[in-house]
Amino acid sequence: MFVINCPYCGERDQQEFKAGGEAHIERPKQPTELSDDEWAEYLFMRKNIKGVQFERWNHAHGCRKWFNMVRDTSNDEIKLVYKMGEKPPLE
């Protein structure tokens, strides 16, 4: 069970959080302009990275804020958390 440093509340037990999958998949601004393939990419296709992954988490049983996390999925080490809307770190 991880300890997650919520950018709004500080360190809390993982039990208070919900994971929300891959981060920085922006909802298309003009979905009707997309082909079925492109829409499927947005809807379903995921990087599912083994290694450093950018993902979304929600402090569901706390401040209820969504935020981003950089985590290594091969060892569950959390590298960084940052607020929604903030630019992802380059590496």
């Binding site: 990275i49 992954q53 988490w57 569950d76």
Partner: peptide
Amino acid sequence: TDDYVSYTQKGSHQ
């Protein structure tokens, strides 16, 4: 299952 992606073959105690 846990709700996050992980390749560790370990899950949460809860």
